[in-house]
């Protein structure tokens, strides 16, 4: 191992240890506020609140305006699970790349299918 790479590995190692300590700690600190529950439970609570919000919005709001709102909340929930439960926030960036590149392509293809007149034509309607 060269001397040049050593400090980088030390940084990554300490970053991983920090992430590990964060998930094992009995409390969670968000924006300076310490909550008396582990990080995983805090994320679960947020997911629960977002789900209830989604269902209420779907019932209360009429029309297409609710579509971007609901999809936005769903994406936020998915991102929370991927970042904190699947540890993509702290794990190797190679994992993130392996997941996000095909996901990005899939989203582009879906938008294309919805947009073109022969299959969807939604955006032009």
């Amino acid at each position: 191992m060269s001397e040049e790479t050593m400090p980088v590995e030390h940084t990554e190692q300490s970053h991983k240890h920090h992430a590990h300590a964060e998930t094992l700690a009995p409390t969670t600190t968000i924006m300076g506020i310490t909550l008396p529950m582990p990080l995983y439970t805090t994320v679960f609570m947020i997911l629960g609140i977002l789900t209830v919000t989604e269902v209420l919005l779907a019932e209360l709001i009429e029309g297409d305006i609710k579509i971007p709102l609901l999809l936005g909340i769903a994406v936020a929930k998915g991102a929370l699970v991927v970042m904190f439960y699947m540890h993509l926030k702290t794990d190797s960036r190679a994992f993130a790349l392996a997941f996000l590149v095909p996901l990005g392509l899939a989203i582009l293809c879906t938008l294309f299918l919805i947009a073109v007149p022969s299959t969807g034509g939604y955006f032009g309607a």
Binding site: V55, L71, K77, V81
Partner: peptide
């Protein structure tokens, strides 16, 4: 599997 359901739930049942 959970993430997929989060998206399906919103897209199929709520939107």
């Amino acid at each position: 599997v959970d993430v997929v359901w989060i998206l399906l739930f919103t897209l199929i049942y709520l939107v």
